[in-house]
Amino acid sequence: MGDFSALGEKLKATRNKMGLSLSDMSAKTGVSKTMLSQIERSESMPTIATVWKIANGLKIKLETLLDDSSQLYEVKSIDDKLAIKDDDGRMIIHSIFPFSPISGYEVFYGVFKPGCNYSDDNHTNSTTEQLFVTDGELEMIVGQNTYRITAGCSLSFDSSEKHRYINNGDIDANVLIIVNYE
């Protein structure tokens, strides 16, 4: 399967960053507290089925626990990312750094085409959203307030408030978006 030498350290770091006790982690994963403790102390090398149970229970990718530390850097192309489109194709979103419970956030690259008028009021578990416009201009309506964000400018807001992304310009508004979760 691979080298599990760093698994214990990664598991413990993940648990600590998530603020979980061994009992909490056991309840989420279905793996006994004793086994989790032994894995964290590198006293036991779990089966792949056990590692899957831990990853699934914590809602993290298996790679988070098994990631080879020699691969600290990885170049990925936006062309290889699945695009989510809405507003008749005028809003295109790529998840460039998917959510991780360790970081507590995810990062998106958005292209808002001219004429885009997209409302997003589905953030029930996120706390804040930060966006940075790299090209073009975006009008943001957050609650009752309207903000004009031009290239080189940013906006941070409470993502639980109803908000709307509008591109009234003639060119694409390219935007980096960070969504933070509790």
Rank of each mutant, 00 (worst) to 15 (best):
W52M: 11
I102N: 04
S126I: 13
F132L: 08
S156P: 10
D80M: 11
G30T: 11
E137T: 11
I92N: 02
Y118N: 15
V51Y: 00
G104C: 03
M35R: 07
T150L: 10
G136N: 06
I48M: 10
V75L: 10
N125S: 12
G2M: 07
Q71L: 01
I92S: 01
V133M: 01
K28V: 15
L138W: 03
I84D: 09
G104L: 04
L11H: 04
K33G: 05
N16I: 15
A49L: 06
S159R: 03
V107P: 00
V175L: 03
Y109Q: 12
K28A: 12
V111L: 08
S44T: 12
V107S: 02
C153Q: 14
N56D: 07
F112G: 02
P114A: 07
S44F: 06
F4T: 10
K28T: 14
S37I: 10
K81C: 11
S159N: 04
M1L: 10
A13P: 04
S5A: 13
K12R: 13
Q144V: 15
Y118H: 15
L82V: 15
V75Y: 06
M45R: 14
S69N: 14
D80W: 11
T50L: 01
S119K: 14
D3R: 05
V133I: 08
G30F: 03
S32Y: 10
N125F: 10
D67P: 02
L58N: 00
K53A: 08
Y181G: 03
G169F: 01
E106C: 05
P98T: 11
L82M: 15
T64P: 00
G104V: 05
M35D: 03
I96F: 02
A151H: 08
F132A: 02
A173Q: 01
M25T: 15
M35G: 03
E161Y: 08
I166L: 04
F132Y: 07
C116W: 04
L58R: 02
K61W: 04
E40Q: 06
I84R: 12
A6P: 02
E129R: 05
C153D: 12
A83D: 07
L66G: 06
H94S: 13
K85T: 15
D79E: 15
F4A: 09
I84K: 13
T146H: 01
R148L: 12
I60A: 01
N122T: 15
V75H: 06
N16Y: 11
V179L: 03
K28D: 09
D170E: 15
D3L: 01
N125K: 14
E63G: 09
Y147W: 10
S126A: 15
A173D: 00
K33C: 08
G57M: 01
P114Q: 08
F99W: 09
Y73Q: 05
L36Q: 02
K85R: 14
Y109T: 11
Q144M: 12
A27C: 12
D80H: 13
E161L: 13
A151C: 09
I39P: 01
K10N: 12
